[in-house]
């Protein structure tokens, strides 16, 4: 049942925290026991070992650098590509949503590129850019760009025509309608796009670094694989998960700040 009538001694929030702790502790205990006392210990390192290794990784380097550096370089790659994707994606999306001509010119090309997964570009990007950072920027850019464009396009297409009519009626010219009506009313859509894009970008950097890199979180886990070091892989996954979580929540917090006027809110 979707009711929230389980326990009157605790508030809903307290209950969630209590259960979260219980279930996490259970997970760690089961993991620890399985890894120490069953035959799974062959390939599953105990939880305690992974956690100590995780904390140690901030002080002791993995490969040449500490974990903070690996996370930092991956984030830097995402940030650069994300910035480009945001600017180009919003421009293309709003343009296609607002102008029929612009849409007619660019939409077929965009629709041709869109279904190709960003990681499928890796072989070409290596041919074009070698193993440099440019290639990684390119892959991550493609990973973010499509989501931002599609969402912005949706937003600009769904502007209430009555709002545009109202603005024209009040004396706004086409340029003003575009900047004061079409653009701001697409903002919630753009944010939805940015949120998906940042997650996709993080996923793309992991993929790109796994295939061609000498540092970064993706490299950490793939290096763990090639040296048979399960602990290192798991430490990498923990770091990737934490950063992914922060990124996803950062954008929704930002959206709540910037779109206070937008009462209706999704999940």
């Amino acid at each position: 049942m979707i009711d929230s009538t389980t326990n009157s001694r605790f508030t809903n929030k307290q209950l969630i925290i209590i259960y979260t702790i219980i279930s996490l502790v259970c997970l760690l205990i089961v993991w620890e026991l399985v890894a120490r006392f069953t035959s799974a210990s062959m390939f599953l390192p105990p939880a305690s070992e992974v956690l100590t290794a995780f904390f140690r990784s901030f002080a002791e380097p993995i490969g040449q650098h500490t974990m903070l550096f690996h996370v930092g370089i991956s984030l830097y790659r995402v940030a650069v590509a994300f910035l480009f994707a945001t600017v180009i994606g919003i421009a293309l999306g709003v343009g296609m949503g607002y102008s029929r001509l612009f849409e007619a010119i660019f939409k077929p090309l965009f629709e041709f590129i869109r279904p190709i997964p960003p990681l499928a570009w890796i072989p070409l990007s290596i041919l074009w850019f070698g193993l440099s950072d440019t290639g990684k920027f390119f892959i991550i850019f493609l990973g973010c760009f499509c989501f931002i464009t599609v969402n912005t396009y949706d937003g600009a297409k769904n502007v209430d025509p009555e709002l545009m009519g109202a603005a024209r009626m009040l004396g706004a010219n086409e340029r003003q309608v575009f900047f004061k009506i079409v653009l701001p009313s697409s903002v919630p859509y753009i944010f939805a796009g940015l949120q998906i894009a940042v997650t996709a970008g993080w996923s793309a950097v992991v993929g790109a670094e796994m295939i061609q890199s000498n540092e970064g979180v993706g490299w950490v886990i793939i290096r763990g694989m090639s040296t048979g070091n399960t602990v290192q892989i798991m430490v990498g996954i923990v770091a990737i998960g934490i950063v992914g979580f922060i990124l996803a929540n950062l954008t929704s917090a930002l959206e709540r700040r910037l779109c206070a006027w937008n009462a209706q809110k999704g999940i």
Binding site: D160, A166, K180, I181, S185, W261
Partner: peptide, 10 residues
């Protein structure tokens, strides 16, 4: 307008 059509972000 009937729906007021105020600009919600302003």
């Amino acid at each position: 307008y009937q729906k007021t059509s105020l600009f919600p972000w302003m």
